[in-house]
Design a binder for these strands. Structure first.
Lengths: 217, 217
DNA sequence: CTCCTTATTATACGATTGTATAATTAAGCA
DNA sequence: TGCTTAATTATACAATCGTATAATAAGGAG
């Protein structure tokens, strides 16, 4: 009869939502869609399963929020790289490229996380919108950096160049993330910079090396 | 009492396995992992669910076979492109690149299919092996084509160049497949060829246009 | 201190999952 | 033709899924 009911603390709506989103992204990254069940998500977020639906209308609703949060994080990570760089357009571009080709952006779990959302993105119009906006926003940022280079001001050719450079980044991000053992340390970054330099026919400076142990999850 | 048992025909093991693999790939491409249930797969293959385990030890076993079949198809599609091309090394390379950047290789469902397997690949050692072998095989093929170009015989630099060119192809394949409306007809192919031409510092001829309506699913 | 709101836990429910097994029947062989 | 085998269907089962609802208690208001 002595019922042991789990003790708990009340938290703000914002904290609970963030915890649930973080838990969902972690599980999705580690084990794919099948691992991110409502019970597993709630468990990792430190609550019981029933509470999820107190903060999200449905699991799909939580999935949408998690996807939006992921895309937000990825774009902000890239943008931060250019702001901390110098004023030289070539250096800014190099920093922008480099940050995408090393951890935590270039990472196997990140790639798998992104891949796991693809099918949701196809069906859900809201997620599709976020996907397109994120991709085009990233590419526009790249195009702006390219147009800032000397002699690359023409928008029409800059568009084609930004698509090509974006492809180099995405392709290397994919391969470096999924097959990390196939590349030497820093090789992906180096190849990416020289390829983009060749595409743009513009020399690029070597960006500063990654901070050794700045980000520990 | 008059039991209406579904009529059936006995088929060869090979035919049944192929039908099951094809059905699994179709469902995986259309609706992702959650859509490819054993019942749905059996239904599309024209049999009842119980029979799956007569030809595959488990669903994971079928998944493995389906992945191997997919990778096999993708590599053979790419290899076929170079064999039908002329003897000119640059033309062969251009044909190899072009076939990867237009349907049926560059296709949204194909990308989602590939992405859906990523988490399986991570866990299953057999699938991981197939994945690495396919990727490295494709890249080796690309490297061989590059080394055949005049003045590109050095293996060390050809390796870096093939990684870069492969990234261009993969990135454009990804973006063209997932965001087909963001590109004009033939634009992806054109951008890919000129980017690779710039990376290799070698002019590439325009490959023959895709046959208009050769492949109708 | 007491009451009241509601965040939270606990439990239940129907649907669906992969798997296992029994019941049938198609088709080759004597 | 009749027999035999195993390919195939049909059914059952435990586990787990997302969701819904009732019971409980945390924490601020008065």
């Amino acid at each position: 009869m002595a019922e042991d009911r789990r003790p708990y603390r009340r938290e703000s709506q914002e904290q609970r939502r963030e915890a649930l989103i973080a838990a969902a992204l972690e599980l999705l990254a580690e084990g794919g869609p099948q691992a991110a069940t409502v019970r597993a998500i709630a468990d990792r977020a430190g609550i019981t399963a029933g509470l999820i639906r107190h903060y999200f209308q449905s699991k799909d609703d939580l999935t949408r929020a998690a996807y939006a949060a992921l895309m937000d994080r990825m774009t902000s990570e890239s943008l931060a790289a250019t702001e901390s760089a110098s004023d030289d357009p070539a250096a800014r571009l190099a920093a922008f490229v480099a940050v995408s080709l090393r951890p935590p952006v270039m990472d196997g779990e990140r790639v798998r996380l992104w891949a796991g959302f693809l099918h949701h993105v196809r069906r859900d119009p809201m997620m599709r919108e976020v996907h397109e906006a994120t991709y085009l926003g990233y590419r526009d940022r790249l195009q702006a950096l390219i147009q800032a280079l000397p002699g690359k001001a023409d928008p029409a050719t800059a568009r084609a160049l930004s698509i090509a450079c974006n492809a180099v980044i995405d392709g290397l991000w994919l391969e470096g993330g999924t097959l990390p053992d196939s590349f030497a340390a820093g090789e992906v970054e180096r190849i990416g910079l020289s390829a983009i330099s060749a595409i743009l026919k513009t020399p690029l400076p070597l960006p500063p090396p990654a901070p050794n142990s700045a980000e520990v999850p």
